[in-house]
Simulated scan of single mutants.
Amino acid sequence: MARPTARLTVLSGPSGVGKGTVVAEVRRRHPEVWVSVSMTTRRPRPGEVDGEHYHFVEDEHFDWMVANGELLEWAEFAGNRYGTPVAPVREQLAAGAPALLEIELQGARQVRGRAPEAQLVFLAPPSWAELVSRLAGRGSEPPEVQNRRLAIAQAELDAAGEFDAVVVNDDVARAAEELVGLLTAPPPDLRPEDSAPE
């Protein structure tokens, strides 16, 4: 029985690199690409739509999802929890269509553990100076908060070697197209050059 060519692709990278912007561009250019919607225990922000930006749930429901293995990955940030419901991802892949997750490094590592066949893509900034500029431009945070954020970003950048592919976000449209190319490429064990008899 032939294996489906659909593949789970995880996009991760340091804070401030533009993951959300690149995924939004993918959706705009390729509405057929399915992007997982994360679940969170935090309250909706103004303009956020339940089921579109996040699935907003109570702590008790999130606890139940964790206890019953219903999350592919989950993590806690700033006192709120975020996770990827596993059922919609499985349904998408079973239908033979690629699935895209946009998550943080901690979640990407969990996916690697639970779904080793997943393709992990690291979104990198054009340069460290550019990332510093983006992070510094996020608001008037105290220097110690900025320094902590930069230290985390450096640690996240150092993890690029754990990923299957690296996409540099030097141009949002180009990065989006490169990501779609990775999404739609057949898994390595199904590529013609790998199918020759031994």
Results as ranks from 00 to 15, higher is better:
A2W: 11
R3Q: 14
R7A: 10
V10P: 05
G13W: 01
P14L: 07
G18L: 11
K19N: 06
G20K: 02
V22Q: 05
V22E: 02
V23Y: 05
E25Q: 12
V26Y: 00
R27G: 00
R28D: 00
R29K: 02
W34K: 02
S36E: 11
V37W: 05
M39A: 15
T40G: 07
T41M: 06
R43K: 14
R43M: 12
P44Y: 03
P44N: 07
P44V: 00
R45I: 09
R45M: 15
H53R: 12
E58H: 13
H61W: 14
D63C: 11
A67M: 13
N68A: 13
E70M: 15
W74R: 10
A75E: 15
A75I: 09
A75R: 14
E76G: 14
F77Q: 14
F77S: 13
F77D: 13
A78D: 14
A78F: 11
R81P: 02
G83A: 11
A87W: 13
V89M: 08
R90Y: 11
R90H: 12
P98M: 03
E102D: 15
L105C: 09
R109P: 02
G113C: 04
R114D: 08
A115I: 11
A115Q: 13
P116S: 08
E117Y: 09
A118W: 04
V121F: 07
V121C: 09
L123A: 09
A124M: 07
A129Q: 14
L131S: 05
A136M: 09
A136I: 04
P142N: 08
P142K: 05
E144A: 11
V145C: 09
N147T: 12
N147S: 15
R149V: 04
R149I: 02
R149W: 08
L150K: 10
E162A: 10
A165W: 06
V168C: 06
D170K: 09
D170A: 13
D171T: 04
R174G: 13
R174C: 10
A175F: 04
E178T: 05
V180S: 00
V180Y: 00
G181R: 08
G181N: 07
L183V: 00
T184I: 08
T184S: 10
A185F: 02
P186R: 10
R191Q: 15
E193W: 15
E193R: 12
S195C: 15
A196V: 13
E198G: 12
